[in-house]
Computed example of a mutant assay.
Amino acid sequence: MKILHLSDLHFPTPIPLHQLKGKMIIGYLNYSLRRKKKYPLKIWNSILQSIQTIGPDIIVVSGDITNVSHETEFREAEKILSELPQDKVFYIPGNHDRYTKQAVGENAFYEKYFSNLSGEAIAQNSDYIRVKKIHDLYFVGWDSSFPLSILDAYGRVRPQIVTRTLQILKEKKIRNYVLVCHHPIWNPQHRQETSHHKLLNREEVASLLKEKPPLAFLHGHVHTNWVKFPGKELPYHVINSASSTRIPDSKHESGFHVIEIQKQNLSIQRYTYNSEQSKFTKAPLISYSEKE
C-alpha cells in the first residue's frame, strides 16, 4: 500500500479586496505580500507529474488548501484538486480552511466543496470525525482547527473526539488505521511551537491514543518536513509533509512523503522540489527519535 502525503497547499487565488472583511483583509494582504511568490502553480504541476510516476494507491491532504477561507479559494481549489484521482483521495481541513466564523458550521465552504472526499461523517453536534476505507486501509480524520484571532493558529482536539474514535474503531473492528490531523502531536526539540500555534492538548490526546495507536499520524501546519519514529509515548510514526507546494529554502525544508505500508511495517521516502530540474526528486529523510 503506497500513500502519498501532501499538506498545506495554499493555492494562490486572486480575491478582490472589496470582497474581504475583517480578519480576511489582514490575512490576505500578509499572504499576498509575503508568501504568494513562494507558492507558484508550477510546483503543483510537478506534484501531478510525480503522482503519475510514483503511482500511489492513496493520496492524503492534511489541510490548508486555502489561505483565508474565501469561497473563491475553495471553488478554485476544487478545480485544481479535481486533477487528482478522486477515488484515491482523503482530505481534512486545516486552520486556514477554518479561518473565519463563516468557515465553520452547517454551511461551511469546506464541507460544501470537499465533504464527499473526506469520508463518512461519524460524530455528534459540531464534533468532526471522518472515516474512509481506501483499498484495505482505514483513514481517520480529525479537525483540530477553529476560527481565532489574527495572531493565533493553535488547535485542539476534544478528548471526547478521541474516545469516540476509539469506540468507532472497536465497533467497526478496525485493526490498522492511519490518523490524519492538521496540527502536530509532536515536534522536534528545535521546532517547538508556541501556545499560539500548537495543538494545545497534545499530551492528553497522545495519552488517550495509547489504547489503540494508529500506524501513523499524518499532519502539516509547520512548513518543513520531518518524521518521528515510534517511541514509548507515541508508539507510531508522526509524519509532517508541509508545505508540499512551497519553494524550499533554508528555513523550510518542504516537500512531501511517500509511505509504503506492508502489514504493519512502514517505509518512508521524502521528495523535495528541485528548481534546477523543475521536478520533485528523492531527498534524504529528516528523521528523529521521540526523545530528540
Rank of each mutant, 00 (worst) to 15 (best):
K2S: 05
L6V: 00
S7G: 06
D8N: 08
H10W: 06
H10M: 08
F11R: 03
T13G: 13
P14H: 01
I15V: 14
L17T: 05
L20Y: 11
M24H: 14
M24S: 14
M24V: 15
L29F: 15
N30F: 14
S32Q: 10
R35E: 10
R35H: 09
K36S: 12
L41Y: 12
T53K: 13
G55M: 11
S62L: 08
D64W: 01
V68I: 15
E71R: 10
E71S: 14
F74R: 09
R75C: 15
A77D: 04
I80G: 05
S82H: 09
E83G: 13
D87F: 00
K88W: 00
I92Y: 09
P93W: 04
N95K: 05
G105D: 01
N107D: 08
N116G: 14
L117S: 06
G119F: 00
N125Y: 07
N125V: 12
I129A: 03
R130Q: 06
K133T: 11
K133H: 03
I134C: 11
H135Y: 12
D136N: 15
Y138M: 05
G141D: 09
W142C: 03
D143M: 06
S145A: 06
F146N: 10
V157N: 05
Q160F: 12
R164E: 07
I168D: 10
E171D: 14
E171S: 11
K172I: 13
K172V: 14
Y177K: 06
V180W: 11
C181A: 01
C181W: 00
H182V: 04
H183N: 05
N187S: 04
R191M: 11
H197R: 07
H197W: 13
L199S: 00
L200V: 10
N201R: 00
N201E: 01
R202C: 05
L208V: 08
L209W: 08
P214V: 02
L215D: 09
F217M: 08
V222E: 15
W226E: 02
V227T: 03
K228P: 03
E233A: 01
E233W: 07
L234G: 04
V238W: 14
I239R: 01
I239G: 00
N240D: 14
S243L: 03
R246A: 07
R246D: 00
P248R: 05
E253K: 13
S254Q: 07
L266F: 07
I268M: 06
I268F: 02
R270Y: 02
N274G: 06
A283Q: 08
Y288Q: 03
Y288G: 02
E290T: 01
E292L: 01
